[in-house]
Design a protein around this nucleic acid. Structure first.
Length: 560
RNA sequence: GCGCCUGUAGCUCAGUUGGAUAGAGCAACGGCCUUCUAAGCCGUAGGUCAGAGGUUCGAAUCCUCUCAGGCGUGCCA
């Protein structure tokens, strides 16, 4: 509807330019907003104020010129000038009601768009190293990342979900040593325990499986244990596969799935890391100092230069990062979004600097980043302390088991990624409508329940062309219809800004509006026409709730 | 010190990309159960948008500075 109005306003402006009514050839971007107050109409535009300067006229005077032409549009009821020069537009009553017809026809496709059609995007998220179970921070990343993928998907993009991990570095070597120690019966308080060893209980489990020569099938790893506690390399391979499998199981329980797994070790074995180093040297952006090879990242916006090759000959982590991103670019992703914890934000400048230094035609702001802030967990009004060192911390699996997949996903995307998140476990577990996810799901279940009741009374959902839409005219009807109309633009805005939380706020509002309607109006009555009309309206609400929940990866239960 | 993020109602947070009188959910207070789920709804109250300047027709939103909190600041990832 907003787009229809925008097109009409644009047409009027173009006519005015064509016949000289407007002097300035330059038209502003046409903003059609929804006024905060109902008396300001269905839509409002500020074009008169934007044009005022170029026209050298008062905003209201510009509006006066446009007014007669706008009034002529057949879906506009009245058009008024208000305040400093707003043009308020009131639509004819049935213009709104008729929007339900295409909505119902679109069904599961309502809210989808083609804005990304024909374009490839890649989203890298979670990317946890296989050194332990996924914790709550990974959970937030998984929920946000997956929702962004779903948002891109419904806006037409061809999306690849990717998980990158380090299977060969220092951390992994500590993992292997820790498992080996457990195999040999060495405890963390033993002096022989490895310096930065992982102490969690799960290490003991890995060791046990290894000694039992088990076979592990992860999504991307298939390894049979060697069983020899002295074969560190075999232990490493087995441990990585083990922990990858654990993570896969948690992610599957979270309904998060990846298309591609990328391993850091492959960047080395395929020569990509070395290739990037040679290319950076060739481009003249490197220098040697203190026995190390440096990249002049300060030429590309960094505040200090960074070491690429350490004095001991090894590469620092950002070199494979750059190699990895160059590979992403070469794979043809015009758009790459990296979802990460904000504690890794310092990598952004370095990766981008490295890519620029390669002089490979990569745009400056590529790749894009979505950084989520920390999560604190509250239980019983108290913060649950996280202690990774001791091996005791809130895992994603704990959360899913305790509060359920739907509530966990909802809570993780409820706030914008930039905001720190307080995860209130008690609230998330609550089976009451104080719990926002229940509030929303219940609206859906309640509509299903109404349809069940209607069926018992002999009512079926009417065909769209059999519905008398004029029976939907109360303020509550109109409020719902307007809100339903906002769904596509909410999805679009949410997708473009990588802000899943907008969907949760929308759901909250739509569910609330429905509950209001339900409370005031009985749907199934003796009045057949009215019953059909209301069933049709609720059918549209239910469809929109489903579509929105699907974007969040949350179920729409028919009974609760 | 420097960089990034944040600061909006008692609490948790939105704020249509710069618009009109700043909103929601909890909590508080006051109402509503012969009803398709009261697992709910309606209403009231609650604000120096951290602070100070600036940009302009117009600022919670953009710029500068200050204050407070979080994260980072490695030849760790």
């Amino acid at each position: 509807m907003r787009n229809v109005v925008r097109d009409l306003v644009r047409k009027v402006l173009e006519e005015c330019v064509a016949d000289g009514t407007l002097q300035s050839g330059q038209l502003p971007a046409i903003v059609i907003e929804t006024p905060a107050h109902a008396e300001h109409g269905d839509f409002a535009t500020n074009v008169a104020m934007q044009l005022a300067k170029g026209e050298r006229k008062a905003p209201r005077a510009v509006a006066e010129v446009l007014l007669p032409r706008l009034v002529a549009a057949d879906i506009f009821d009245r058009v008024e000038i208000a305040g400093p020069g707003f043009i308020n537009i009131h639509l004819k009553g049935d213009a709104w009601q008729r929007t339900l017809l295409p909505l119902a026809a679109a069904g599961p496709d309502y809210g989808k768009s083609r804005s990304g059609a024909g374009k490839k995007a890649q989203v890298e998220f979670v990317s946890a190293n296989p050194t332990g179970p996924l914790h709550i921070g990974h959970g937030r990343g998984a929920a946000i990342g997956d929702t962004i993928c779903r948002l891109l998907d419904v806006t037409g993009w061809d999306v690849t979900r990717e998980f990158y991990y380090n299977d060969a570095g220092q951390q992994i070597s500590n993992l292997a040593l820790s498992v080996q120690a457990r195999c040999l019966g060495i405890e963390p308080d033993d002096p022989r325990w490895p310096a930065d060893g992982y102490q969690g209980e799960y290490i003991r489990d890995v060791a046990r499986s290894y000694l039992a020569r088990e076979t592990v099938d992860a999504d991307d790893q298939h390894v049979t244990a060697d069983g020899d506690p002295l074969n560190l390399d075999a232990i490493r391979r087995f441990a990585v596969a083990c922990l990858r499998r654990e993570q896969d199981q948690d992610l599957t329980a979270f309904d998060v799935h990846f298309d591609v797994y990328s391993l850091e070790s492959e960047l080395y074995s395929t020569g990509k890391v070395e290739g990037v180093v040679q290319r950076l040297i060739a481009k003249g952006h490197t220098y040697e100092q203190d026995g190390a090879l440096w990249l002049r990242t300060t030429n590309f916006g960094d505040d200090k230069d960074r070491v690429m090759r350490k004095a001991d000959g090894g590469y620092t982590y950002f070199v494979p990062d750059v190699a990895y991103h160059l590979a992403k670019w070469e794979r043809g992703f015009g758009r790459v979004i990296n979802e990460q914890g904000a504690d890794h934000h310092s990598t952004i400048t370095r990766v981008r600097a490295g890519l620029q230094a390669l002089d490979a035609g990569i745009p400056q702001g590529w790749p894009e980043y979505v950084l989520h802030q920390m999560v604190t967990v509250m239980r019983g009004g108290e913060e649950v302390k996280i202690s990774k060192r001791a091996g005791s911390y809130v895992t994603l699996r704990d959360l899913i088991d305790e509060v359920g997949r739907d509530a966990t996903r909802y809570f993780f995307v409820m706030r914008k990624p930039d905001s720190q998140l307080v995860f209130d476990i008690d609230l998330a577990k609550q089976q009451t409508l104080d719990n926002p996810v229940y509030y929303v799901q219940y609206a859906h279940a309640r509509i299903c329940s109404i349809f069940e009741n209607a069926a018992e009374k002999g009512y079926e959902l009417p065909a769209a062309d059999k519905v008398d839409l004029s029976r939907l005219s109360t303020p509550d009807d109109m409020a719902i219809i307007r809100l339903l109309n906002q769904f596509p633009e909410t999805v679009e805005g949410s997708a473009q800004n990588f802000e899943p939380h907008r969907i949760t706020y929308y759901l909250q509002e739509l569910a609330g509006q429905f509950h209001t309607f339900y409370n005031k109006n009985r749907v199934v009555t003796e009045d057949r026409e009215l019953t059909f009309a209301r069933l049709f309206l609720l059918h549209c609400v239910r469809q929109t709730l489903r579509n929105a929940l699907a974007i969040l990866g949350i179920s729409a239960p028919e009974k609760m």
